[in-house]
Write a protein that binds this DNA or RNA. Structure first.
Lengths: 347, 347
DNA sequence: TTGTACGCGTTATCAG
DNA sequence: CTGATAACGCGTACAA
């Protein structure tokens, strides 16, 4: 741009208001420490000059960026995007910006360095199950640096890291029990990915509920998935190839459930007529899919908001990161069309 | 955190490598200007100290943040989240971070100030149709500041602003012509929102195609929408209340098409049996919805990548913002189940 | 090829 | 209540 004018600094404002730059700074950050008269003069000068604070200078001086880094495996998944929306909104309310990163599970040290240690972000919102927060913590400890982080995903929370999660295991068990209530005994599970070498919590909940009800776990009905549509379709094909099929399926999340139902339909098997399906998350599509999807609703917006608030509290030392808090939010069973009661004939 | 150690600076590295801080700086930004021997010594020192650059100091000095601001109306919409994914990836490749903002259409001046003028972001990726880029430009001009911005959405591109868009009007007309090819003449449209007082391009394309084919525009079949599911459901109810209904509907985007189909079904009207529906975007769900959705595919990932590249080019002065480029990407007709040919009886 | 020294725009400390 | 001044950590003339 041609007529680029030097953007006004705090000095320019000070000059115009006939005060020192220190006073301007005070008006901006602690107005009560300045007399009413000068305060007004300064504010007028701010308006006149069109002054706006230089974040870089401020960050350099304060050693804080007023920015959060959110990391999620795949923003393209509607599950995360709603969370991101909430995070942005909540962060903005407290004067923080939100930087977003994906696919950075490869070299944690490197991007952690790039963002957190470089005064680009003050804290980390970890929605990425592929990254072990404990590792991060040990890494940070070795480096001797502070690392405010809040984790939120479906693995069991690492004890050392503040976390905000839904009780995945309990919710999964609840989903399975609902299928049982409908009379199903031949129940399968489309599992999510295994991360950090820890068992998937929803799978554990599934097994727990089945065992508690003395129902057999048929290995052929427990299929690996990746929380995505293709995984659901593949699982459907596997089920279609079986001579003995489950009458109900608990899918690890909604995306995979949609894929699963679609895959079944391609093979002439209808949901819920032939197989009942229950999902997990309650994304927007669940309500208008055909059939509408029975699912365990995760309070996604709350997840995002609470995690953001806690992280900012940690950053601003309102909360001590050495004594991590683990917030558990409840999931809710949402009954729709994709599940039906087994009639007496066992069909 | 307790044992917080001072993070190493360029000085610490210099000390250890027995060179001056200037040399370290050079090794980092222009390695070829340093002799091989010292370069190696410095690199070793960087590793040893665990040094990482302080972005704040760098930004202050360079007057650049190496950060992009992406603004979209609603990240929760899967359409945008895929774009965001591409933007992040592309930006990262060129060493830029991505800050995300939403709901900031309220006071453009204010947040523009907060982000762009405060060295938080170097440029603006505008996916928000509710914001007029021309206004932004005039605002920036009045302020006498440079404002690198690339716009991308479904309104006609503002001449002064570099833009990357799909040819919405042509694509809309193509969609409508496809319905005609199937024998439909009673065609309705579920429109998107009107923004910046400019007519919606997809609506124009619809009207264009209808007029060109000498087909009547029935006002009762042209319904207002908002590119979302509830709008689609409401439109379906309106159509259901009619005695004479269209045999085909062109929906402004996929989200609203899903809602529309769902709403019809609730009223006992089936797609495509009773009404054919074509959408716009080709979001992930389109492929597994029931019925799978015929739609105009927008190259979302390309949209994000190209826009990002152009913006960075502008920022780095490889491209002049005073002579804006308008990139138009083609949309592709994806034929699936939600549209069917009208049989001879006219049903 | 390398070193010295200054300034980017803030905030915090210390006097007054 | 206000002003002078010293950092914060980096890049870059300019000099050697």
């Amino acid at each position: 741009m041609v007529l680029t004018r030097k953007t006004p600094t705090i000095q320019d404002v000070a000059l115009r208001a006939q005060v020192s730059s220190a006073t301007v700074s005070r008006v901006l950050s602690a107005p009560e420490r300045v007399s009413e008269k000068t305060r007004e003069r300064v504010n007028a000068a701010v308006r006149d000059t069109g002054y706006s604070i230089n974040q870089a200078a401020r960050s350099l001086r304060m050693k804080t960026a007023r920015t959060l880094l959110m990391v999620a495996p795949n923003i393209g998944n509607p599950f995360y995007s709603v969370i991101l929306d909430a995070v942005i909104d909540e962060a903005q309310k407290r004067g923080y910006g939100v930087l977003v990163g994906t696919n950075i599970g490869l070299d944690p040290g490197r991007w952690l360095t790039d963002y957190l240690l470089s005064t680009r972000a003050d804290g980390l919102l970890l929605f990425h199950g592929g990254l072990d927060p404990e590792d991060l913590h040990t890494f940070a400890r070795e480096e001797g640096i502070s690392l405010p982080v809040v984790a939120s995903y479906d693995e069991p929370p690492a004890p050392l890291v503040t976390s905000v999660v839904t009780d995945n295991r309990a919710a999964a068990a609840r989903a399975v029990r609902y299928l049982m209530q409908l009379g199903h005994t031949k129940i399968g599970h489309l599992a999510g990915p295994v991360r950090n070498n820890r068992p998937n919590e929803r799978l554990l909940g599934f097994e727990e509920a089945m065992t508690a009800a003395n129902l057999p776990l048929n290995p052929a009905w427990i299929l690996p998935g990746n929380y995505d549509q293709p995984g659901g379709i593949a699982a459907a094909r596997a089920i279609l190839a079986l001579t003995e099929r489950p009458t109900a399926m608990f899918c690890g999340n909604d995306e995979s459930a949609f894929g699963f139902i679609h895959g079944l339909r391609e093979g002439g098997v209808e949901c819920p007529r032939d197989i009942s399906v229950i999902g997990f998350d309650d994304v927007g599509q669940a309500e208008i899919y055909h059939p509408t999807l029975t699912t365990m609703r995760q309070p996604r917006e709350d997840l995002g908001r609470v995690a953001t608030r806690r992280l900012i509290d940690i950053i601003e030392k309102r909360e001590t990161p050495t004594d991590p808090v683990h917030v558990v939010l409840p999931a809710e069973l949402i009954i729709r069309e994709s599940t039906r009661a087994l009639d007496s004939s066992g069909r």
